[in-house]
């Protein structure tokens, strides 16, 4: 048998957020990578359709909000290992990000956000001239 090298993440309840909707909000699992040209943010939003993601950038903050489509369950629950709920998280974005060119896509419950660096913040190669 193949070994299990994955674990179930403990869900974190976002309690300090005022909600206008009943139900729980969870903080999604997020990966952030940096390359020369951009910051890349990957967030797990299982059960959220691409149209139900609200991604906003305001006052230097990137707000990710995902609504899980209510799914009708038949019968009664006989084993419950996880709770369903909406997702919410906020990231502070440094001003070296070009906010106008932020792009996002969602596939298989994973949100990918490309945060391109502003021209001024990109690393520049300096050529050293021989004299």
């Amino acid at each position: 048998m193949a070994e299990n090298n994955l674990t179930v993440a403990q869900r974190t309840d976002t309690t300090n957020v005022e909600t206008t909707r009943n139900g729980k909000y969870f903080t999604p699992r997020v990966d952030i990578f940096e390359t020369d040209g951009e910051l890349l943010l990957l967030a797990d939003l299982p059960g959220v359709a691409p149209g139900d993601i609200d991604l906003r950038y305001e006052n230097g903050e990137l707000v990710v909000q995902g609504k899980v489509q209510p799914h009708e369950h038949k019968g009664h629950l006989i084993l419950g290992e996880y709770e369903e709920g909406d997702f919410y998280c906020v990231f502070q974005i440094h001003e070296s990000i070009d906010a106008a060119r932020i792009e996002a896509e969602c596939k298989n419950g994973v949100l990918t956000v490309h945060l391109p660096k502003a021209e001024a913040a990109k690393p520049k190669q300096v050529t050293v001239k021989a004299k």
């Binding site: 193949a2 090298n5 994955l6 699992r29 997020v30 952030i32 020369d36 890349l40 990957l42």
Partner: peptide, 17 residues
């Protein structure tokens, strides 16, 4: 992505059964 540095890693990758 290639040639990237990691800022935050909360995901887990690998196989499961």
């Amino acid at each position: 992505p290639e040639k990237a540095s990691e800022h935050r890693l909360e995901w887990h990758y690998g196989s499961f059964v």
